[in-house]
């Protein structure tokens, strides 16, 4: 065997475990869900195996008589999910960027400690951490107690089961996923480039906009992607902190699969969400690609 062929086989062997796992645990189930989305729901759950496009019709507006009704509420729920996921992403960037900047300028040993602290929440169970937020946000919770103690009792609010609570919870849960890619790209930013910008007459603000921001954009885009997507589909946080008042796409899909036992409709909602995410991601990748070609 030639050296090149040998190397080729070795690459394949290295890729095989991950490839097989992805095929079995991701591609297979995904195809199953995709096919369910165009099948008829069974009377007592399950599916009838024939072509049935009306699951999508209920959301997009092509109903089948009075059996599968079109309801704008589904599209509204999806739109609300996108809005809240965007908000969560923006808040996460705003919170993490300065923090990641600060950490990246620490001496190496304290930097390692700070990174450890950032990943600390992973050591506790997600549900427990979200319940902790319920203790903070409820009317008799920590937040209002602190406000009262500070003499701002009038400002006391009931944040539980509001969009604000869901955003706070999602930001909290997804923060490390924003922090780490941001940190990775800010840490690579050569301080000499910032000095060069100042030296050429740019104010600190101009330096940030013209040098720091474009050079750390990959981190922002990467962090935004891995925060936006889970925020869009998350159903634990909205169901605990938003209850029935803040219905998001994740809850809707969960309901269809579990409570309503309408697997095809749940699958159709999931495919719509997936399609939306794919379109956004491809658009971002395409923009990056065309701009990269110029630079």
């Amino acid at each position: 065997m030639s050296v090149a062929a040998h190397a080729r086989w070795r690459r394949r062997a290295l890729l095989a475990p991950a490839g097989l796992l992805l095929a079995a645990a991701f591609v297979g189930p995904l195809l199953l869900v995709a096919s369910f989305s165009v099948l008829e729901p069974g009377l007592y759950g399950g599916v009838e195996w024939h072509w049935y496009p009306y699951n999508f019709g209920r959301v997009l507006g092509a109903p089948l008589g009075d059996v599968e009704e079109f309801d704008a509420a589904y599209a509204t729920t999806l739109a609300r999910s996108v809005k809240l996921a965007l908000l969560v992403t923006l808040v996460s960037v705003a919170v993490c960027y300065p923090a990641a900047w600060w950490v990246s300028r620490l001496p190496p040993r304290r930097r390692a400690l700070a990174l450890f602290v950032v990943t600390l929440p992973f050591f506790a169970n997600l549900i427990v951490r979200v319940y902790a937020w319920m203790l903070i946000l409820r009317p008799t919770g920590v937040l209002n107690l602190v406000l009262a103690a500070l003499g701002a009792g009038d400002a006391a609010t009931d944040l539980m089961y509001t969009e604000a609570a869901v955003v706070i919870g999602l930001v909290y849960v997804l923060l490390p996923f924003m922090f780490l890619p941001l940190y990775a790209s800010i840490e690579k930013l050569d301080p000499a480039l910032l000095a060069a910008s100042r030296d050429l007459g740019a104010t600190p603000a101009q330096t940030f906009v013209r040098v720091a921001l474009p050079l750390t954009l990959p981190g922002i885009v990467g962090g935004a992607a891995i925060v936006f997507i889970p925020a869009l589909g998350n159903f634990v946080v909205p169901s605990l902190l938003g209850g029935s008042k803040v219905m998001l796409a994740g809850n809707l899909i969960e309901q269809q699969f579990l409570a309503a036992r309408n697997w095809p409709f749940g699958a159709a909602l999931a495919m719509l969400l997936l399609a939306f995410v794919l379109v956004v991601m491809l658009a971002a990748a395409w923009r990056r690609g065309t701009r990269g070609a110029v630079a």
């Binding site: 050569d190 000499a192 480039l193 000095a195 060069a196 910008s197 040098v211 474009p214 050079l215 630079a295």
Partner: peptide, 8 residues
């Protein structure tokens, strides 16, 4: 190190 801006 010259510190040329790599994105420009």
């Amino acid at each position: 190190s010259y510190a040329l801006f790599p994105h420009l």
